[in-house]
Amino acid sequence: MVLASIFESGVSIDFYIVLASVLFAIGAVGVMVRRNAIVLLMCIELMLNAVNLLMVAFSTYHGKGDGQVFVFFIMVVAAAEATVGLSILVMAYRNIRSTDVGIFNKLKG
């Protein structure tokens, strides 16, 4: 298999560490900068995917499948989280007619 030998043919683990770190930082910046709550949830998904990428890279690097099973479980938790988060958002939108997280500070007493 040609593709399987990628780690022998030059793409080092460093490359994937840098890529995953950059993706995670972009997701973190998105959470801090954007104010639309749906885009915030999407940035969280981006951060989760950065972690997944790093997990798969290390799993391939060490030659063990356990990391990929963990990626599977991260996907399960991310799906559940997106469902509940979006339904909370829909409910909040019905009450305040906006998805701006700046408006949610009405919650403070």
């Binding site: 298999m1 998904e45 997944n52 798969v56 391939t60 990929q68």
Partner: peptide, 19 residues
């Protein structure tokens, strides 16, 4: 595509279907 490059075919397909 990166997963396929790392020979993780199952996760690549699951990533497309689920995400």
């Amino acid at each position: 595509a990166n997963y396929i490059l790392m020979n993780a075919q199952f996760l690549a397909i699951v990533n497309i279907i689920v995400y």
